[in-house]
Nucleic acid binder design. Structure first.
Length: 567
RNA sequence: GCGCCCGUAGUUCAACGGAUAGAAUAUCAGGCUUCGAACCUGAAGAUAGGGGUUCGAUUCCCUUCGGGCGCACCA
């Protein structure tokens, strides 16, 4: 459902020349009006001065005496509308609980969203956290506007990073005893061990040519399935996977329909490349096999290395083939950091030759860095903040805020508030921008924060528990306060906001919408007593609270955030 | 070297080419016997520099400075 107010004003403006694509805006200051119609486009069509057109329209509307529009006033090239609060309430509050139902649009498609993709044997750090939070929200946005979504997760379980980890393990004194004792340990402890082994193996790899060669030798064993390491490989791989499942995905309210692994595509990847050498798609160069991206304004990339092993590029060719064949999605969104912008251009181009059906259906949803003052996130340097460490730190702050509280399930509430704070902190920044991260101050629990949003819900629920009121407002009271009309106007923009967020693959639009709703709710809350009012006014306000709550909870859901009853 | 991206209050984020550049936080001054003060009210505070295009530029183009990321056998 689209904006009721917008549709109504379009009806009024249509005879004056405004088309269906007319844009409205909200004036920068509330004192200027509730809604505004910029006359630039119309003036151009009429070949007149925008200010003149604005003046004419304002006069015409005032003369007509529209019930919805208390007055229209031309301010420069804008026609500013002061809406009749009562008419707004009548128009908007009638849609009741349906206000936030998923909007099924006509162009319903099946879309695969591939996200998370942590590699096994490596730490799960806050960079991964941004990926998973963005991906989960994107899935929910797409579902909301009517698409069928396949959740995919592509994980690296073969390759050099495993070799580095293994080198680290083999370099650990008494590693066999340690491994044995870890089999009964928690997922967190197992993951910690692997993360440390990876970090030390990784620095050994950079150390000198000798250690580098040793790591490379392990890598070849992994690809060839050498039985000497199979048992250890299987064991440690399962440690990583159960850690992701139990300690990360569940905690972040995410799940996947299909887990893809590099181990299931690398053979086929090599085959695809080899099959496309005779026809000139790929060519041998310095012992490796490359795709000449430079023919298409891109750059060259290696698909098979000189040891005949498929690189990530080749694996991606096989992955795409598998994904399209298994699910036949209209589009695939790969949620991957922006440092791979050029990489994907090359791979998508190569894919057009090896799997022509993919043309125009592969998309890279890129997002910016999460970086610390001391540098960017990298599990290679050890300069990392683990996802779990961050959650723990924020949770501690939340628990401190709750020290005087007597809510029953304190730990569960603190967990939800902490996750909400983190998710919101990440999602409020538009996806393409970097996030400058400081663990002490970046995840706020006051002001423009996830905690503030949950607090809004808790306040509303607290009132509704005291007095549920009638199921709907049968009657609009004679006097509707401006704060009430302002909230209603904002509620009315919910579906348009979600559509835009889904179309742009950017959850931050919903995050901003929600925060703005919270501010408008608070103004209403401060100005309009609910329980102390009476009659139609009271019923209307209780109903308004329910609508605000419904939209707020739907918005939070779209961001992947769970609500609380009290906090 | 070649290419791509970014530079907005002290700090973290906003702003389809459109109005007096919005918020939050930090600072300062106020507000709880009143539906939950994780809140509210007020003050002060910003478009890196220089050119251009336009009726109009934070937004588009050029340039200088500053930062990030790609560019052959990692993922």
């Amino acid at each position: 459902m689209n904006s009721q107010i917008r549709n109504k004003i379009l009806e009024i403006l249509a005879p004056l020349g405004a088309g269906r694509d007319t844009e409205f805006s909200v004036p920068p200051q509330a004192a200027l009006g509730d809604l505004s119609f910029p006359c630039f486009a119309l003036a151009k069509a009429k070949a007149q001065n925008p200010a003149t057109v604005a003046k004419q329209i304002a006069e015409q509307i005032n003369k007509q005496g529209e019930p919805l529009i208390a007055s229209a006033k031309a301010v420069g090239p804008y026609v500013n509308f002061f809406l009749n609060s009562h008419a707004v309430a009548t128009l908007v509050s009638t849609f009741g609980e349906n206000i936030c139902d998923p909007a099924f649009e006509d162009s319903k498609e099946k879309i695969m969203v591939e996200f998370a993709h942590p590699n096994t044997h490596k730490a799960f750090h806050i960079g991964h956290l941004r990926n998973i939070i963005t991906g989960e929200s994107l899935v929910r946005l797409l579902e909301h506007v009517g698409h069928a979504v396949v959740r995919a997760n592509y994980q690296g379980d073969v390759g050099l990073h495993i070799a580095k980890c293994f080198y680290g393990i083999f370099s650990t004194p008494n590693y066999e005893t340690i491994i044995k004792s870890l089999t009964t340990a928690t997922s967190a402890e197992q993951a910690k061990f692997l993360g440390q082994a990876y970090a030390s193996g990784s620095s050994a790899y950079e150390e000198n040519d000798d250690t580098k060669a040793k790591v490379m030798a392990i890598n070849e064993k992994i690809y060839s399935g050498d039985t000497a390491i199979t048992a250890l490989y299987k064991l440690t791989r399962s440690w990583s996977l159960s850690y992701f499942e139990n300690n990360i995905y569940k905690r972040l309210s995410t799940h996947f329909d299909r887990l893809y692994f590099e181990s299931e595509v690398f053979e086929r990847g090599r085959e695809i490349v080899k099959n496309n050498m005779a026809n000139g798609v790929f060519k041998a160069s310095d012992g490796a096999v490359i795709f000449e991206g430079s023919k298409y304004g891109l750059h060259e990339r290696v698909f098979l290395n000189s040891k005949d092993l498929p690189t990530y590029e080749a694996k991606d060719l096989a992955l795409a083939e598998k994904q399209f064949n298994e699910f036949h999605p209209a589009r695939i969104y790969h949620v991957v950091g922006k440092e791979q912008l050029e990489y994907f251009k090359v791979v998508f181009k190569a894919l057009e030759f090896t799997f022509p059906e993919s043309a125009g259906r592969e998309h890279h949803v890129d997002y910016g860095w999460v970086h610390l003052k001391s540098g960017k996130m990298s599990s290679r340097t050890g300069q990392v903040i683990l996802a779990e460490e961050m959650i723990a730190e924020v949770k501690a702050v939340v628990l401190e805020n709750m020290s005087a509280s007597d809510v029953a399930n304190k730990d569960e509430v603190a967990e939800r508030v902490a996750i909400a704070a983190i998710k919101y902190a990440f999602l409020r920044t538009s996806t393409e921008n970097d996030i400058a991260f400081d663990i002490k101050s970046s995840v706020a629990t006051s002001g423009d924060s996830g905690a503030y949003l949950l607090y809004m819900g808790a306040r509303i629920k607290s009132i509704l528990k005291k007095e549920p009121g009638p199921a709907s407002a049968e009657q609009i009271p004679a006097e509707v306060m401006p704060e009430e009309a302002t909230v209603l106007l904002h509620l009315d923009q919910f579906q348009d906001t979600v559509s835009a967020a889904a179309a742009r693959q950017d959850p931050s639009l919903v995050a901003h919408y929600l925060y703005s709703l919270a501010q408008k709710f608070t103004s209403f809350y401060e100005a309009c007593p609910v329980l102390k009012s009476a009659g139609a006014t009271k019923n209307f306000r209780l109903n308004l609270l329910r609508q605000i709550l419904a939209v707020a909870e739907r918005s939070l859901y779209l961001l992947g955030i769970k609500t609380v009853e009290e906090m």
